[in-house]
């Protein structure tokens, strides 16, 4: 139930931020009865109400008896999940500097290392081969340009 309380607070924050952003929407002379802020205000209010009810229910419900997780698929804890996401975010500046193929090699090596693989020649060969495969697929076969870097 603690999870639901945190979820409730998170949803309330989203509703509040969204409502605050709604207030910055400009007025227009072409506006209809509802206007561009009509639905966003309803959505912000709706999400806030849902968040309060989820929170209240979680608060009033007795803590659940812990259930066995044996049937549930194992999931990564959030700090670990954020790590893989960071690799994705880092791809953006790296690709803008060194270009698509090299950025892809870097990303493939980074993911393999992050997933617990020990550094080896084979890993680098797979990463270079993989990047070459994607470059051939997108740039040559499909004819779609991929990010160009400042250096390459």
């Amino acid at each position: 139930m603690r999870k639901d309380l945190v979820a409730s607070m998170g949803l309330l924050v989203i509703a509040a931020v969204y409502y605050a952003a709604t207030l910055t929407i400009q007025q227009s002379t072409l506006e209809d009865e509802i206007g561009p802020t009509g639905l966003p205000i309803v959505l912000a209010a709706l999400l806030a109400i849902i968040a309060v009810v989820i929170g209240a229910r979680a608060f009033m419900t007795a803590p659940a008896v812990p259930v066995s997780d044996s049937d549930k698929d194992p999931e990564a804890p959030w700090p670990r999940a954020v790590g893989i996401l960071l690799i994705g975010w880092l791809y953006l500046p790296v690709a803008s500097i060194v270009g698509y193929p090299l950025a892809l090699v870097t990303m493939l090596v980074a993911v393999a290392l992050y997933e617990g693989m020990k550094p080896s020649v084979r890993m680098f060969v797979v990463a270079i081969g993989g990047a070459a495969f994607f470059w051939l697929l997108f740039e040559v076969v499909l004819g779609v340009r991929q990010p160009e870097g400042i250096l390459f």
Partner: peptide, 8 residues
């Protein structure tokens, strides 16, 4: 879609 004002 109606007024053409940009939102968010």
């Amino acid at each position: 879609p109606v007024s053409g004002v940009s939102r968010f």
